[in-house]
Design a binder for these strands. Sequence first.
DNA 1: ACCTGAACACCGTTCAAGT
DNA 2: ACCTGAACACCGTTCAAGT
Lengths: 188, 188
Amino acid sequence: MRADAKRNYDRVVASAGDVVAEQGADASMRDIARRADVGLATLLRHFPTREALLEALLRRRFDALAERAESADPAQLPAETLKDWLREFVVGAATYRGVVELMTAAIDEPGSALHASCTRMRAGGAALLARAQEAGVARADIDGTDLFALASATAWLRSQPALDSRADHLSTLMMSIIIDDGAPATVD
Amino acid sequence: MRADAKRNYDRVVASAGDVVAEQGADASMRDIARRADVGLATLLRHFPTREALLEALLRRRFDALAERAESADPAQLPAETLKDWLREFVVGAATYRGVVELMTAAIDEPGSALHASCTRMRAGGAALLARAQEAGVARADIDGTDLFALASATAWLRSQPALDSRADHLSTLMMSIIIDDGAPATVD
DNA sequence: ACCTGAACACCGTTCAAGT
DNA sequence: ACCTGAACACCGTTCAAGT
């Protein structure tokens, strides 16, 4: 990549971070380009789709989440490990408004830019779930796809501005579907 | 209302029903007007906002749902009554893609055209929930707003095309947060 | 009273022209 | 190689002109 191209790329990503944080995942691409002091066409050549741009924003976080699941400490309590992971999944998926919708759509659309990170996260979550199920601390009649869906629904609740004040309570309730370790489930 | 105005009004509602069923709640208003063989400006004078148009589409169903909660048979089992009502709430809120988002937003925006029906439904649900809680068959640490939120999250899951095949299973799981009557919760 | 076409300021897509 | 302005077909909003 040429030096000026790299510079533009970085400016766009930085600008997108700001604008998407303000306006959500359906923010105006023109707006993002404007704030990056870049032509709209330039933005679109670096990121041909909206999802490609969001992927650049979310990749780091999503990859970290997948790795964390893959290299989970087997000595830790399975319920705690799963709970911690879910908590971070939900926070990650709720950082920008409108991202959860794109994730659930992307996971069965192989063409989507978000597809890879989403399937990888689902696999990671499924492994943690299986360990918890074997230990008898997670509900037995759910699989990785259910887990991904329920965690997404939790993130969806979290990203509704109207429900901001009870976000933690609702997350705790959602958690209680999945985990059953005797202790009262909690998010904080 | 003049005869021709009434005719246009009805044409628009009918057309909106079709288009919104196909494209979701963010369908193009121009498209709806076109299919109704009406000028866009005419549509917008009958329904100044998108929510006003959706309200016309959903009113009947939402009012029926509220009435049903208000006049629930006290002889019936509280858990069954609540379960049946939730089931219908979820189906109603998931008929059109994108409606749940509008509902959760509308419930704390008194200006919204959907505000009245949503608050009335929440009140109805809260009453059924209270009866179930007194009978000890519903979780004690939730209120009407939580119930509305959880039912909305269920409807959200149901309106994700990618999750179509496990919609019933996910609804059952969500139900299990709220109701606890010993019997395995189920939606069908 | 009610309807409508047209002007307006937006949007994302596409591409020929520029460095 | 990379960038960009401009044309295009859309969108919802607004309003003057028509019946």
